[in-house]
Amino acid sequence: MPDPGPVIELDGIENRFGAQVVHDGVGFDVRRGEIFGLVGGSGSGKSVLLKTILGLRRPDAGRVLVEGQDVTAMNDEELRRFKRRYGVTFQHGALFTSLTVAENIKLPVAEAVDLDEATLDALVELRLRMVGLTLDTAAKAPAQLSGGMVKRVALARALALDPAILFLDEPTAGLDPIAATEFDELILYLRRTLGLTIVMVTHDLDTLARTCDRVAVLVDRKVIVDTLEGIVAHDHPWIHSYFHGARGRAISAEREAGRGA
């Protein structure tokens, strides 16, 4: 059983860019071992919220507690140590373009611990296998990869230190449905065996339905948190058209069918 205590607590988060208010009092808890989905329209502030939790951006107001520590109050050294405990994939991959795939995956490991080159290579093999890439990818440059492969390499790099918390920004965007399903299964496996806590920004309703225990929806600069069923039943107009539009209906039909069987 996952430990129900919160790993991440957000309280009264406000983020502003000049006159534009992105978040106005956003607060929720993420429990240990949970897969937590974050959805919202484009520009609703999902990426900005993720950066706030990661300590990459200080909010204009509010507190972020991760494993009981206040991220907004950490000094640089504490932030550095904190950052080793989580893995992140960015929306656009953010692979280091001047390094090969293998070097991208080795970098966080080699910076954190002192290991032989052969050991590092063995770990590269593990991470590539974990994300379902063939080993000949290792020698490639990021520019030689397809969009889907970039996402997988980014995940492999995020997993390099076996983090306790994983943050994924639109991880399945650009993956074909089969690859996306494999990806979901990988996520579920990691959660099951490592008790990983996963926070995932996604627009993929399939992924949302298959993996997420709870979902937070960013609307009107605030957040609504519930199980997927609860969110789907919510009567906010944006949420309604999001889950009951053409794409949403296909998903709910699928879920109904699955339940009937």
Binding site: D121, E125, L126, L128, R129, M130, G132, L133, T134, L135, D136, A138, A139
Partner: peptide
């Protein structure tokens, strides 16, 4: 399970 899937070899 991982090793059961063919991932080719390192170049």
């Amino acid at each position: 399970e991982l090793l059961g899937r063919d991932a080719g070899r390192f170049p």
